[in-house]
Write a protein that binds this DNA or RNA. Sequence first.
DNA 1: TGATCCCGCCAACGT
DNA 2: ACGTTGGCGGGATCA
Length: 833
Amino acid sequence: LKTPLKQAATSHSVLTEIQPDCQPLTTPPKPTEILPADPWTPTSNLKMLISAASPEIRSREQRRELSNNTSEVLQAKHCLQEHLSGDEYEKSQPSRKEKSLGLLCHKFLARYPDYPSTAGNNYICLDEVAEELNVKRRRIYDIVNVLESLHMVSRLAKNRYTWHGRHNLSKTLQALKKVGEENKYTQQIQMIKKREYEHEFDFDGERNEEMARSFGSNEHSEMSFVELPGMEFRAASINSRKDKSLRVMSQKFVMLFLVSTPQIVSLETAAKILIGEDQLEDLDKSKFKTKIRRLYDIANVLSSLELIKKVHVTEERGRKPAFKWTGPEVLPNTQDTKLERTSTTCPPPISEPITSKEQCSKNLFPSRGKQNFTRHPSLIKLVKSIENDRRKIQSAPTSPVKISAGTDQNLSAFPSKMAQVPAIAKHQLEGQSKKAKEMKMKLSRSTLECSLSSPEVVAEPEPPHTAAPSPQPALRQLLSVCPPSHSPVSPVILPHTQSGVSYAVYLHPSQAHTVTTYSPSFVLQSLPCANLTGIKSINSEVLNKITAEEGDNQIATEDPTKSLTAKERPTIKSETSSQRCLKRPQALQENTLIKRCRSDEESLDTSLTFFPSGYLIPLTQCTQCNEAGFSDKQKAGICSLQHTTYSSPIAGVIPATASELKAINIPAFHITPLNIMLSPTSIAPAPVLSNSCLNSSNTSSGQNPSSPVMNFTLQHIGLIPAGVQVPANPVLQHVPVSSQPEKENMNLQEQKVRKNILQLLDCGGLSGNNFLFSLQPSVPKEPQEPQAVTEFFFRTPGGPNTVSSLSANSDGTDRISQGTLYIPQRKLEVSED
DNA sequence: TGATCCCGCCAACGT
DNA sequence: ACGTTGGCGGGATCA
């Protein structure tokens, strides 16, 4: 077979040593000189091998004019091999392979240890590297960008990067997996495969568009770069350029592997998904081609890292290039399953004044600390401005260094310790250390994380406890629920609540994805269904089946849909179609809104607002709702908060300035424990406050214990200006329907409901830390069930009526039918600051 | 051929 | 203006 020849001639030729001479005359193209000596020092055998092959190749800069002299050592090798076959000519030049990104990457990696000691300076100077490796800097960027996506390097400053090696790899992969799950990549992959069966994937607009919409519209998952706590700002502040392509693409690509069951992903599938995500518009051929090209670039680097390897999958259509994950298994993050620490952190009792808001607020957003988080594209600008401010404040290029040091230590207590430990051992150690530190982690994690992500915080010496006096019970719960660990990326959580407590949930609107819960009682699963209808019918089993099918099967002859039960299948399809109908208009609207928002971020009357997501705001006892129209049992607590300025605690770091944020009215929602209706497509739930409530807010918060908490929460979250107080009473109405159910029963019910909600959310893909959501006037849905106790209001950025009731889905078991989702229609009023 | 993907133009950004 | 980054796609190579 080709093997012999190939090996000899090509692949091995590179590695094999010398075959002197054969120096063909030519080599015209590049005046590259060769440096015989390798500046870099290979650290591993493998690297040596690789490097051995290339040393000759290195050519000097053009300035070095010498053209071809002896560069040919390498060429010689080839020549030899080649001329065996006859063509020495071609070989004369460094073969293309020798210049491959993969090889280059190997050489690059050979220069640095996998687990660099934190002590040493692990700086990377791009120019130097480029010169030493004898390539244009442009090539180095390709490598570094991918490494960056894995947090193996981080940008320090212009032309300088810091080498982290694989210290952060496991965390990064965990985070990526999480995000991937939230993005419903599994489902997307499935969808694509399904489509492929249904009809050829042709590149003409229409169909593709539809397809893109079908699986992409919901999510508009334009998730951006997934950051690791501690590295986020460093990277972002220095490198403000849009984290687009390669970096993000690389992460997404990796995610695909991590969420696929056979961890195999074909290029085609990956490209489609990635394209679908970004621009639904033109999925033309060229786009596709370009995407594929990029994926190759990324794949080469990942291959060099030995995270993936190339394989082929054979399907009916033939053999398709694909890659198989060969990296470490990514375990679900088990570290912080426990949530208590938060409460400890922020204990201020309700009655007590909120002394250390900041600390508490930080605790409110644990997600950002420990977990990685995704930043919605629309927030980037805002983030930038924040970063700029930060930069101004802390002048210094040096800051990054400091931060990094702190980061390494704090962030990865384990990693640092095992800096020199082999990867395998590391894993074990990690586990041990985890347990050992479990308690500690629990208590301090959120804080730590927060601090990591923000320099200022880092500076804070004191632990959380000190900070806040004592949070109210509700708050406590809230806090307790937000352990970063479980779902690092997705903040959305439904905390334990006492019965009768309403919650406000902030979700990542832009994408429908999975929501993770910290509550031990629930198990979150990604549901494949796009819309509510399908949700119910689909159970975990189905999911599993689907999952199993994930990835490119070596032999993909089976119909992907087979796995679905008859019942399930139809449901899904119907959903799809229905979605299309809805989606289109919605999508359009959304786009418009988004564009508008982006373009007019500054404008006052923006219909869009930035909200931090991932916060759960417990709303306790709402006695009444003044709003008319909801007379029907006031189930819908409708309140509108007017002229409110929101600040986004993006990254939990610095609240945006008022000017940067628009004030808008937020439709409030309140959730009662029993009935819940959710819209799968809904993106973000927003708390609704009634104006009247606001006005009446003067009433002391004392009346309602929840008031202080709420105000506090809202303020910290940036939903309301610091000075504003929201009256406790009217704000969120809690419908007494099941007013005082037995506590236990309630709890059960609540749990059940929560579970359902979570699933729903998961299915809907609501998640994310930061998100942008637009509050559009949505048609208020009729409260379907008057008795509904719990109400969630979710808004989809564009969709007029994005709310649907879950009850429809009920199929008997696990149904959410109990809950009713009611969305009061509120107009969004935007007020300037 | 189709799979790969190198190369470098040139725009977006930062300084 | 200039340097750094890096999107992008032509077109060369490889299989």
